[in-house]
């Protein structure tokens, strides 16, 4: 009994500590983006652009490939059922709506978590282990301004951009299956897609991807600062970073899907 109570207490205290640390980090980051730059403390534009290239531009090939294949897969899987009802043309609706509302933002976020969320944790963690964070502090450089803000801004810009590309590529995957395998004419497929989509589909997808970017960046950075010990600590926190990010991405996805669902009904 006392063991169970102790466990609950420890878990609660650890969660409270983690939440407080994340909140402090959030407030500090927001300060360094919206307040300090206007007091002449500067923003690291060059570093932000470099991170944007890393998170955004360099992620495009892998995201495009995976999302294209997912588009093809959904089209083929759904063709099997829809063909029974003679409604193959609805594949265009199904692929485009699911791509915009759900699959493109989610797949992109998960790929970028694995690709860049882990890299953020590993970079900050290794810097901590090698005393580089202390070196920054002794030089009078703020770690939030120097390390967190550029990553944060770059991620907030990059993820929605890559998500847009992912949406297009996924629809293109469905289009190829529709045209070459189900003998739908390109014009009919295009028209059906255009009819099916409304602005809200796109907006809901992009809103989600914006919040996914917040999750990936904050979890990555927070875990990086939590690293203790040596190389093993970096490995542990990097794993934890990816696992936590994916969990939170799904939760955030659920919340937004629920909100959009409620708003529509």
């Amino acid at each position: 009994m006392s063991y169970a109570l102790g466990y609950i207490g420890r878990v609660t205290l650890n969660s409270l500590y983690a939440s407080t640390s994340v909140c402090v980090l959030m407030v500090d980051t927001i300060n360094w983006i919206f307040i300090h730059p206007f007091r002449g403390k500067g923003l690291r534009i060059k570093s932000t652009v470099e991170h944007f290239v890393e998170f955004g531009v360099r992620s495009v090939p892998i995201v495009a490939m995976i999302c294209f294949l997912v588009g093809v897969i959904i089209a083929m899987q759904s063709a099997y059922t829809l063909a029974k009802f003679g409604a193959s043309i609805l594949i265009a609706d199904l692929v485009s709506i699911s791509a915009l509302r759900e699959l493109a933002p989610l797949m992109t976020a998960i790929i970028i978590t694995g690709r860049n969320g882990s890299a953020i944790t590993a970079e900050i963690g290794s810097m901590k282990v090698a005393e580089e964070l202390d070196a920054l502090k002794v030089m009078g450089l703020n770690t939030t301004k120097y390390l967190v803000v550029p990553k944060f801004l770059a991620m907030l810009l990059a993820l929605p951009c890559v998500t847009l590309i992912a949406m297009l590529v996924m629809i293109f995957g469905g289009f190829l299956v529709g045209v070459f395998s189900l003998n739908i004419t390109p014009e009919a497929y295009f028209e059906e897609t255009a009819q099916a989509l409304v602005n809200k589909d796109l907006i809901s997808g992009l809103v989600k991807s914006f919040f996914f970017a917040l999750v990936i960046c904050w979890v990555g950075v927070y875990r990086g600062f939590q690293v203790t010990g040596g190389a093993e600590g970096v490995g542990k926190e990097t794993t934890a970073s990816v696992v936590t990010s994916i969990k939170l991405i799904i939760v955030v996805d659920l919340i937004w899907t629920f909100l959009f669902f409620k708003a529509a009904s």
């Binding site: 290794s126 810097m127 090698a130 005393e131 580089e132 202390d134 070196a135 002794v138 030089m139």
Partner: peptide, 12 residues
């Protein structure tokens, strides 16, 4: 002030 670290702590 400046500090020399045991591990040098140069930015790699």
């Amino acid at each position: 002030m400046g500090m020399c670290f045991q591990s040098s702590a140069l930015f790699n």
